[in-house]
Design a protein around this nucleic acid. Structure first.
Lengths: 339, 339
DNA sequence: CTGTTAGCGCTTTCAT
DNA sequence: ATGAAAGCGCTAACAG
């Protein structure tokens, strides 16, 4: 009754044990439900815990049990709507599991990415989710010997390294076919960055749709972007500066579509009346552009959830599974039949 | 020379010591630069570390030293451009410090927020950054006895609880004054959620600007939103449904301005030709709306950096400082002089 | 059912 | 300059 109410540092399990007049193991047992404990002792302990406002030190628990209840997430850009949606899926996937996540950014740079992963490993995360990684599959495999890794955009299938990959080629194909079905034949393409697998695949899908409709792909209509807004705007301007003729443009992602849309606005060209525009990703903001953007929906949120579930399973020694929903065309208001 | 190349689990400091033929303390000393060590031993140890690919277990280090080199970040929405920008500032602020951050979301709910903070505390984070918290100042003060906390949107000034607050009232005042200077007199306001301090302050700024110009604030022109796009759209529609007359609208944040802009588009009302629109926040996307949005720039990134620096200082026992840059009006293309 | 004991991997006196 | 030993807070045999 005369114990100092709030001594010094936070209370330890030992403090609780003393306060309740039991051994530390008993407290631990109650905390973990590891064994039966008599009701009176349990009550005493629970009371002590409440009174002292005790919470087990997770670092000590982690050190002892060899698991940190933490997973690492590697993104490439900490403030991009693209990663956000996936992170939301991860967050939901972690809900109620006791796991927390530490998020680091590779900044689209392979070396930095590898470095960050090493840091996560030193922190003893129980597993890693790698989003749009830049490092090689071999490197991933190497790290996966220390901790399980699930990555987006890869086809890995070992026991501790899993990949979930969307069909970029098919998505791009869908987008361009939509345009063709609307009567467009001169379709410009604002690509993603060079040497990027996703970007290459999207280009391939663009080409296939054109081929299938017996339209020759005009190289002048393909202009390089880098997935950012500004590049979409510049790409669009380049198209105009070189006097290309086209009635539609397919941007390799929504962000560059936003940039393209602004370039069009600046030129006084109406969308979709004069030119149709399609994006890729379906970012949350794409329902609120003016006009709302027709795009290929990528199940970002689901990817986050599914990757998380898979990782958790691997961590628990179960074998993982999970299928991500297919891409789909979302027709909104930036495309219309060519007149 | 015949040691298994990659034994079982990751190597420990003890392994390194054995391999190098020194005591664990020596290895620790080299790792931490805690004391002088002879060159030959140092070399041997360094070689062993490299060979075994050793990295100290941070949980063990943390347990021993009482600091985890981890800070907790509490956001309200893990996928909102608003928090993103601030997170980017935090990330940069942490760069090179050895600190990592675990990000959790309070989902705009005080109870959940408090719960999350408790979890962070159990994880022994060295400090907490609280962004747009919903919990009371008293609650923050309570938690701050365990670990230092810096929070945005509060005026706290104790040694372990700091607040950084922007002047919402002034920002809103700037926005509305801009509109008034352009000749607008019937200015609608799409507010933030009820019972929200920031939202109230922005409303106050709106009123002050009107008063100063001797314009009576018409209550019919004030309609409630909740900071999300959909609410901006609905608010706008409510204005039309009740046949209000106005030439400009000020939305309490950029997201609701996006929604309002879409409602306008749907009605075939031109921006800024028919109606001017101003937002608040200056999210990254606001330079790429159609047309680019006139708004009040909130230094989100700087807030993140400054909050982080302050927290780090407090953690290190230094006293904190830091001033956040003032709000400013960014005139883009959604406002024009009334004809 | 419950207490005692021995660590998890590291740092840090304290000797030498 | 360096090793031995104790211990951070917790869990998990191992005895009773």
């Amino acid at each position: 009754m005369a114990d100092h109410p709030s001594p010094a540092g936070p209370s330890t399990l030992m403090d609780v044990a003393r306060q309740a007049g039991v051994s530390p193991s008993t407290v631990s047992r109650i905390l973990n439900g590891t064994a039966k404990v008599s009701d009176d002792k349990r009550e005493a302990v629970l009371a002590a815990i409440a009174k002292m406002n005790f919470a087990p030190n997770q670092m000590a628990q982690g050190l002892k049990k060899g698991r940190s209840l933490t997973i690492g997430i590697v993104v490439q850009d900490i403030s991009s709507p693209f990663f956000d949606e996936t992170l939301r899926g991860v967050d939901d996937g972690l809900k109620g599991t006791g796991y927390a996540s530490v998020i680091v950014s590779g900044h689209w740079n392979a070396d930095e990415e590898a470095e960050r992963i090493r840091l996560l490993l030193a922190r003893k995360v129980d597993g890693i989710i790698l989003l749009s990684g830049r490092i090689s599959d071999e490197t991933v495999l190497g790290f996966s010997s220390q901790r399980p890794i699930v990555s987006t955009g890869r086809a890995l299938q070992t026991r501790t390294a899993l990949g979930f990959k969307i069909n970029n080629e098919y998505g791009a194909y869908l987008a361009v076919r939509h345009l063709i079905e609307l009567g467009h034949r001169r379709i410009a393409f604002i690509s993603g960055p060079a040497n990027n697998m996703d970007a290459d695949e999207r280009l391939a899908g663009y080409r296939r749709a054109l081929e299938e409709a017996n339209i020759d792909a005009d190289p002048h209509l393909i202009v390089e972007g880098n997935y950012h807004e500004a590049s979409g705007m510049m790409a669009m301007n380049r198209l105009f500066d070189t006097h290309q003729q086209f009635t539609a443009v397919f941007a390799a992602n929504d962000l560059s579509a936003y940039g393209a849309r602004l370039a069009l606005y600046r030129k006084g060209i109406r969308v979709p009346d004069d030119i149709s525009l399609v994006g890729f990703d379906d970012l949350p903001g794409s329902s609120y552009t003016t006009p709302p953007l027709t795009t290929i929906r990528q199940p970002l949120y689901d990817i986050g959830r599914i990757a998380t579930h898979a990782l958790l399973r691997v961590i628990n020694g179960e074998d993982a599974q999970g299928e991500i929903p297919p891409l789909e065309l979302i027709v909104r208001e930036t495309t219309r039949r060519v007149r």
